[in-house]
Amino acid sequence: MQQFGDRAQLNSQERLFLSLSEQLSRPLLQVAQLAELAADDPETAAERWRLVQIIAQSSLHLVESYALSLRVSGKITPLEMEPVTVSSLLYDTAGALEPFAKQYGVSLELDPALRMQPIMADRMVLQSAMVSLGQVFVLAQSQSDEPSPVHLNAHRGRYGVVAGLYGGSALLGKDNLRRAYALQGRARQPLQRLVSGPAAGVFVADSLLHTLAARLHVARYRSLTGLATTLQPSQQLQLI
């Protein structure tokens, strides 16, 4: 029989895959049980199938993001670098997250700084990372005894444009994130202070950002803490 400690022998890619598998068992269980409820009560079936659709779409996004990170890092899919306006990227991210957040009763607040310099990035990769991260933040807020909105924010930082998602205060610290990277795929709750479960979206997002030579880091915005990435504004695009 497999022992608990065996997880430590997995390599980083296997650990990410294990984390993703454990994450996906949750929505699949939800779908199975919603179907079980719908079968018993045809009157509410329509509402339950709508919920199944949202759960399936969010899960599909996570799987696709994971696959995209593998394809890009394995050079199966080339990066398509283009000028990206971070505020529009966050706007689209909020749109993609909206149905998921609504089901969990979590509101999204979009507050990107205006007149932000464009950055050069693969838009699809960057947005996939933000949506994956956003799903974790929505879950985290819904699991809080005092839920607060999820903020999508971009602002100028010392080293570039800082784009990320923020929740309630004191959810995260640098040590929590560092420990979470070490525990990813090894523990069932690597980000226990933030959210129950594997929080695979955080690691998938980081894996995607890695292909853009960026990383996730703990960031502060007003009194909130969150996870963000720092992106370099294009000097050339500023001249145009």
């Binding site: 949750r26 269980l29 939800q30 049980q33 919603l34 409820l37 018993d40 009560d41 919920l51 759960i55 089901q103 969990y104 009763g105 879950l139 819904s142 699991q143 809080s144 005894d145 959210v195 129950s196 479960g197």
Partner: peptide, 25 residues
């Protein structure tokens, strides 16, 4: 902790005649 999951369990248990109090933490 998962509110959607909890909704399903609450409905199933209530249908079976139980009262349910739900906590996320």
């Amino acid at each position: 902790p998962d509110k959607l999951q909890a909704d399903v369990y609450v409905q199933a248990l209530q249908r079976n005649g139980h009262t349910v109090a739900h906590a996320v933490s």
